[in-house]
Design a protein around this nucleic acid. Structure first.
Lengths: 333, 333
DNA sequence: CCACCTTACTGACACGCGCAAGTGACGCGC
DNA sequence: GCGCGTCACTTGCGCGTGTCAGTAAGGTGG
């Protein structure tokens, strides 16, 4: 404990001094370096010194020396993260931990360049949702970051892109509504411009599925998160002869439900509604919300595999099957 | 680009060689070190070399040398993170960024010791929700981590503890129900054991507020996230003469709403319900959910101030006022 | 008695960076 | 001619590790 408030770091040199051995010996003991016979007596002396001083090796120094950090950085998108993302992160963290990697998520601070973020961390890999421009990617590589996984690359230019086929979500919604007799669908498009990266492919999935199934072209309505806006949208759909609505996600679907209630439109009688995500509130809606859920566990494991394979230079794992997306059938559709 | 797949890191030495100057000069140019006059010609040579090679300084080496990393680690609790936590993280990240700090959140991997996490990162500060045992805290200090902020310390032993008085949330719920004429309240306690750290103080707030306001002792029911469980709870409350229910959070409140609907109990006529968090689904419930919201922005700024003050050794900022918690009045109570 | 091997260590370097201190060239005053 | 000051840099150290290449002590074989 030095004079100022900051007690000096305990280093392996301190431990060595305390145990009466060299720093190298300390390192050998702590890392259990193979082919180095350390007698038990010495080993214990070192271990006790570690305990007494409360020594913890500096991750920074270790990373510098080994040139490889076990850190995986996940750049969160700037749209509001819900329970689905939360669960994905948790499972991803666990999956990566099994491979000795540690996941850190960075909620993007407004107006801060991305480069500053990964620079201050020096991760082994970066997982991100939005696409990055090529200069940024090149900069990362130059900084020694081995992997970049873009999860939502519309172009598919980079490796490992477009993990969860968002189109498929729209397709599943559409297929369910078609199977229950609906011929003319509506799409409840989100008001938040930040999520267009997800909304567009989902809507696209609905459009192409409608075409494939010979349904009418879907009637798209942007639905702001107010009851009034939802009422407006519901009325428009009613006027257009729409009997089933695919919502961008469960929050929007719940808004539509509220709009229908306020407009005197019965669900699913007059209008069937189907959401995405299966949020906790979905089963308690009135009527309970039918929705499309993704298997976050499987997705997380795939991402983890993607990262570790690329780090070790092995071939990429197969894409997850279409069964990661499934319908949760309740009363609203 | 070397033979194997891993292109060697571009270092400042490479830049120096390319620009025909010393490494130090490169450092001076890039850090704009004061009191070091570098003529523009040289400066441009260096900058061009940086550009050409795509050089990015190693965060690791920089942190090692300066002894101070600008990383703040936030250990997320293991309970499911919802939109509220998401927003808090985002604002916190922005607030810290304004002070030159970078926030990383770690979703706790199941069964992984906490120590491994902060060790692999070497942060300047750690923000956490759960309380940590004292040995762990001591270990962090020994590792050179200056600050530890426990947000939910029931004991209040550490500095900066108990940021958002959870009791206060329960109190606000109770006061509103009391003000609207309810004398005997119920409490909808969450089924998930992971959130007891939050649930207990909130319930405690309801209990003491009831006592202060001379209401009856609240009737606590654990409500699992199914309609059946909620129906059961609603019936019990009805039998006990309860006319208003404080729910642990909005998800539980929505379950109670669904239970009331299924049990033929009208809200708020027979039973008033009030939640916590103001999730996106709250305004679309039937009836729209009255709830207690926290000002995540203010909280985030307070945490950021707490961290920076402790890092610089300055006195702690004043606790946020009670106005960070406020009622969102809708139809359900 | 010496070569040789094992045991139990230690010395020294490298990782990439920031920065204190130094160095040579040049200009200026006297 | 010399001291002094500025300019434009460079040399060299240290941050805390992991690890390669020793090395002294002790034992064994011939």
């Amino acid at each position: 404990m030095s004079v100022d408030g900051h007690p000096r770091r305990v280093t392996s040199a301190d431990v060595a001094r305390e145990a009466g051995v060299s720093r190298t010996t300390v390192s050998y003991v702590l890392n259990e370096t193979p082919h180095q016979k350390i007698p038990d007596a010495t080993r214990q002396r070192v271990l006790h010194a570690v305990e007494r001083l409360g020594y913890a090796p500096s991750a920074t120094a270790r990373a510098l020396q080994s040139g490889r950090s076990d850190v995986v950085l996940c750049l969160l998108p700037d749209w509001p993260i819900g329970p689905a993302m939360g669960q994905l992160l948790e499972t991803l963290s666990t999956s990566l931990a099994a491979e000795g990697l540690t996941l850190y998520a960075h909620p993007r601070a407004a107006g801060r360049p991305v480069s500053e973020v990964w620079r201050s961390l020096g991760p082994a890999a970066v997982v991100l949702w939005d696409e990055l421009d090529d200069r940024e990617v090149a900069a990362m590589r130059a900084a020694g970051i081995a992997v970049t996984v873009a999860l939502l690359s519309p172009t598919g230019a980079h490796k490992g892109e477009l993990l969860v086929p968002q189109q498929r979500i729209g397709r599943v919604q559409t297929e369910h509504l078609a199977a229950t007799g609906h011929r003319r669908l509506g799409y409840a498009y989100p008001d938040d411009p930040r999520v267009t990266g997800f909304a567009e492919p989902r809507l696209d999935g609905v459009r192409t599925a409608c075409a494939d199934l010979r349904l009418d072209v879907p009637v798209v309505q942007t639905v702001a998160m107010t009851v009034e806006a939802a009422v407006e949208a519901v009325r428009s759909w009613a006027d257009a002869g729409v009997t089933g609505v695919c919502a961008y996600n469960d929050d929007v679907a719940l808004a539509v439900l509220a709009g229908a209630r306020a407009a005197g439109v019965t669900v699913p009688g007059d209008l069937a509604v189907i959401g995405v995500d299966d949020i906790p509130a979905a089963p308690f809606a009135s009527p309970p919300l039918t929705t499309v859920d993704s298997d976050q566990g499987a997705i997380a494991q795939y991402i983890a595999a993607l990262v570790t394979r690329q780090l070790s230079g092995k071939p990429l794992p197969p894409r997850p099957g279409s069964d990661v997306i499934h319908l949760v059938r309740r009363a609203s559709a």
